[in-house]
Amino acid sequence: MDRTTVYATGPAVALPGRPDAPAAQDCRRRPAPVVRDLRERAGRGPRELAFAPTDLVVVTGLPGSGKSTLMSRAARGIRIDSQDTRDRWDARMPRLLPYAVYRPLVRLAHYASLRRALRAGGGVVVHDCGTQSWVRSWLARAAERRGGTLHLLLLDVPVETALQGQRERGRGVSRYAFARHRAAVAALLRSVERGDLPDGCGSAVLIDRDAADVLRRIGFTD
């Protein structure tokens, strides 16, 4: 595997459309937040994103954009994905029972798992739907308490691609829910592109589907 480590450091916002990815950039902590834009590189992005051992990484994007697939393939350390929690509950529930009935229990179980992972102290990669800003605030405080930094990994794909992803996995969200996700992710994307990161977030990395496809490791240094 071509191992290229990307570190999100530096004082300025990286401009999109750079022709290729540098061999090494730094994802470790710096006082000023920074954005690294890895989109539109035709698959020439890094194979690895490396963070400090006490950092937290939040993977966000539209439903169906490929967050769970990326995390399942590339995340190292502790991985907390709400989709995993739902799958475990789905396997135990009667087939005809609508998900809406036990959704609150799934969410409670997910947040309980996340709380346990944060207490463990190591690096954690977390799935974020993008609509619950309080979760990122919680993670930012947790990262600060453990001496680490919260990093945002934002998967930017067209709406049509996300909808196709939902169809392929055979599980979608309602039009209302998708509209909420779409508005929240679009607002977050615009903010990050301006260099205005969520409170407590030390860096953000923007990736598209091509960049996600070549990523083989999202991990933490020793």
Rank of each mutant, 00 (worst) to 15 (best):
P94W: 15
D128L: 03
R180S: 13
G121W: 08
P94G: 13
D84H: 06
V58E: 04
L139S: 13
R76W: 07
A187G: 11
G195N: 11
G219Q: 07
E48R: 15
P94E: 15
D20T: 10
L97Y: 08
V159H: 02
R88W: 03
R76G: 15
R216E: 14
R39H: 04
D213S: 09
L154E: 00
G172N: 09
D90H: 02
V58W: 01
P98W: 11
H127M: 04
T9Y: 07
Y102G: 10
R44V: 05
H151N: 09
Q25E: 11
V58H: 02
R47K: 08
G121L: 04
L96F: 09
A14G: 05
S82P: 08
R41S: 12
E193L: 15
P16Q: 04
L154A: 02
G77T: 06
Y176F: 11
D90Y: 08
A91G: 13
L62F: 06
D208A: 00
V106I: 15
R116M: 07
R167K: 14
P46I: 03
S65H: 11
T161Y: 11
A143L: 03
L189M: 06
F220I: 14
R146S: 04
G123W: 12
D210A: 03
P31I: 14
R180D: 08
L188H: 00
V13P: 00
M71D: 14
T9L: 07
D196W: 07
R119F: 05
R41A: 06
R36I: 03
P33I: 10
E40I: 07
G122M: 10
S203D: 06
L189I: 10
S203L: 07
V192D: 00
R47S: 02
A143Y: 05
V185D: 02
A21D: 00
T69H: 04
L49P: 03
P11K: 01
T85Y: 00
R167W: 12
G195W: 04
E193H: 04
A112N: 07
C201N: 05
D213M: 01
E168M: 13
V185T: 15
V192G: 00
V125Q: 09
L108Q: 14
R44P: 05
V214D: 02
R116V: 13
T9D: 09
G170I: 15
L163A: 12
R180V: 01
G10Y: 09
H110L: 03
R3F: 11
K67S: 04
A74S: 11
G122E: 08
R190S: 15
A186E: 01
V205I: 08
Y176Q: 13
A100T: 04
R73T: 01
F178P: 03
P31N: 06
A75Y: 12
R95G: 08
V157F: 00
H110W: 05
